[in-house]
Nucleic acid binder design. Structure first.
Lengths: 244, 244
DNA sequence: AGGCAAGTTTTTGTCCGACAATCGGTCAGT
DNA sequence: ACTGACCGATTGTCGGACAAAAACTTGCCT
């Protein structure tokens, strides 16, 4: 006879999962406030401290949000809630530049292609603004810094694919800050970056998905070339560049 | 003079972020135990309840894990910790079949291609075992169910790319259960699935990346064809299939 | 009637103390 | 050497308490 180690989850976890069910089932819709801690404690038949511990879990998962000392609001987890955790996990797993690059090499061109069909006028304008800012900064010999990161976020936002948006974010968050590490050694790299960005934007504006995709592919491929030219190993561990 | 409303984060959040810093900085390595709650409370100069609330956040992020009523152990977040959250987020964002499919259409072939170069003998054996099981099940007219899900997990695990593994998981978790929804209406679909799986495995075994990638691409493309043949809209919302 | 100011009630954040259950180890007894 | 009772440490849960902030009421004034 098999006896399996029966697990009795602590009460605070029960509270957490129970509230999750209520939110997922739609009984509590995004935007609505949760009952007060005292009410919840009474309903679940546990102490307020226990409820609070359960709430902390939901809070860190982005299912509820508290602004100041106000009531908890049900929210739908945003990319900004999830991406940092995934990014942390990737860093702790000691992913290499190559692993990141391989994934970026398929996700970024897809984003560019989809953006060409789906980008709104406002999004194209934002891309152009980013392009001008990047260009101006690079002319002065300064590193594009966060502008590069922002560019790729804008492209994937314009792609109107929420799955892509969420999947791509952690990769970009780690990969593009890596550009900074070799950009000083390769002055021409920044100019190539601006050129590629320009062509991607041009493709998106002309609704030319193939063009946007092609140049995005070149652009990401360039990233690896630059990495290698700078004498960095492909197996180099990635450090967290930005901590948002 | 501008006075901005300065925000004082609650103490439990300070505890959480402080512990995060210690873990990320490497002062606390994975596998090591955290100090006891009482010690932490003393060190941070806060009450034990406050410490406990902070710990809950780390716990739900997969940075620490508790087994039974023992000390907390520092751990590196595993795919199983993150994927469910991302999956939930995708469901709450009401992603469509098409959005999922578009991303799968680039990630899965990449996984197959990389697996062809990197798969270990044990992983190939696991793939074959999965293939046999799937084949046997389909012969009996039963739905492959979780075996399909497992197949794609095995492929991406064999790809030896941790970024891909983490990025792909939430997509697979939502997409493959969707197969069940139309599989009954299209009896030939299951046989096509087995054939595609077989070719992918063959490609991986022969270290023929192009072959594996090609058939994986066909396989994922088939998924959309099946979806459309079953009369389902591409814009259909995706329901959570499995809740792990 | 409508708007504003002061007061009252709720609610959150934090603390204190307490106790049963469990874990880990010690130590005597067989 | 193995068993089982004992003991300290730690966690899970509870009860209550209180200051600060937010939300709500009330009453006054125009």
């Amino acid at each position: 006879m098999e006896i399996e180690k029966l697990k009795v989850p602590p009460a605070y976890q029960a509270v957490s999962t129970e509230l999750q069910k209520h939110i997922l089932s739609g009984a509590l819709k995004p935007g609505e406030p949760l009952p007060s801690e005292i009410e919840l404690a009474a309903k679940f038949g546990v102490n307020r401290s226990t409820v609070r511990e359960g709430i902390r879990q939901l809070e860190s998962e982005g299912l509820v949000r508290r602004e100041g000392r106000k009531r908890l609001l049900v929210t739908v987890p945003h990319s900004a809630d999830l991406a940092p955790r995934t990014t942390r996990a990737l860093v702790m797993h000691e992913v290499t530049f190559e692993e990141l690059w391989e994934v970026a090499m398929v996700l970024e061109p897809l984003a560019a292609q989809l953006a060409a069909s789906a980008a709104s006028d406002a999004q194209i304008a934002a891309l152009k603004a980013n392009l001008d800012a990047t260009s101006a900064v690079v002319e002065r010999g300064i590193s594009p810094g966060k502008l590069d990161l922002e560019f790729h976020s804008l492209v994937s936002a314009a792609a109107a694919n929420k799955v892509l948006l969420l999947s791509r974010e952690p990769v970009g968050l780690l990969l593009y800050p890596a550009f900074e590490t070799f950009q000083m050694q390769l002055p021409q790299a920044a100019r190539r970056l601006v050129e590629a960005h320009r062509e991607v934007v041009a493709g998106i504006e002309r609704r030319d998905g193939a063009h946007a995709e092609l140049w995005m592919r070149k652009h990401v491929a360039d990233l690896k070339r630059g990495w290698e030219l700078a004498g960095l190993s492909i197996d180099q561990r990635i450090e967290p560049g930005v901590t948002p």
